[in-house]
């Protein structure tokens, strides 16, 4: 394969991966965030006590998280078709990716919020804050660095997941690696795909770390 052709293929696949990861990462996190907040605040004696609903949602989240991604992709094909009109291609792949993101991110957000010192909730209550004010002014503000790291971790995981949606013709870098590198015995394509993925993950992780550090005032040196 000529270098031009390889570059063309890589570029096209990279854009597909970025497209899938960006859309499913954003949409999935936007849905996962409130679910994570709910999971972290709806236990017994918490801000919005609803232990039964908390357990029910926790169960669904666990079920979704323990389903292998490739099975999830196949299992929800009818739903994907309903939503996008097709079950193959990059746009179709976004549906299972988004669905996988929601519980993953929700659990990470829950953990990040539960890390916030309970004393801060008590202090805010003592100031006369409403539960909503406590969520927005205290919990989310204090958990922001952890939530940014959780988002970074989600995006990195999504880059990995997106390699699997080649199975439904989703395209992307992983798909390129399998079809050319493995099925057509072109190791240079495989190598190129792996290098691009490594660079991509590094970039995402560094950007996420930098952002989280910017907002983390917990261990500032004066």
């Amino acid at each position: 394969m000529s270098p031009d052709m390889l570059f063309d293929l890589l570029w096209k696949s990279l854009l597909q991966t970025l497209h899938m990861v960006a859309v499913s990462g954003l949409v999935g996190s936007l849905i996962g965030l409130p679910i994570g907040i709910f999971l972290a605040t709806s236990g017994k004696n918490e801000l919005f006590p609803a232990p039964a609903l908390n357990q029910a949602i926790g169960l669904v989240v666990n079920a979704a998280r323990s389903t292998p991604f490739i099975i999830l992709v196949v299992a929800i094909i009818p739903f994907t078709r309903l939503l996008t009109g097709t079950s193959i291609g990059t746009t179709a792949a976004i549906v299972p990716l988004t669905i996988a993101t929601v519980p993953f991110f929700a659990r990470l957000v829950e953990a990040a919020i539960r890390e916030v010192d309970k004393g801060l909730i008590e202090a805010a209550r003592a100031m006369g804050a409403t539960p909503m004010q406590i969520v927005f002014k205290v919990l989310l503000a204090e958990a922001r660095p952890s939530i940014l790291l959780a988002f970074t971790m989600t995006i990195v995981s999504l880059i990995g997941y997106s390699a699997m949606v080649g199975a439904v013709g989703g395209g992307g870098l992983g798909d390129l690696g399998i079809r050319y590198g493995y099925q057509r015995f072109m190791p240079e394509v495989m190598l190129a795909v792996v290098v691009v993925l490594i660079v991509l993950v590094q970039l995402v992780q560094s950007a996420g770390d930098a952002l989280a550090r910017r907002f983390d005032k917990r261990n500032r040196k004066s």
Binding site: M127, G128, T130, A141
Partner: peptide
């Protein structure tokens, strides 16, 4: 009513309970 009362009653804590992000 409680929230109104709490605005008229200040409280300080052993571990200060300040927001690290502020």
């Amino acid at each position: 009513g409680l929230r109104g009362l709490r605005r008229e009653v200040g409280m300080i804590f052993q571990h200060f309970n300040l927001l690290s992000s502020r």
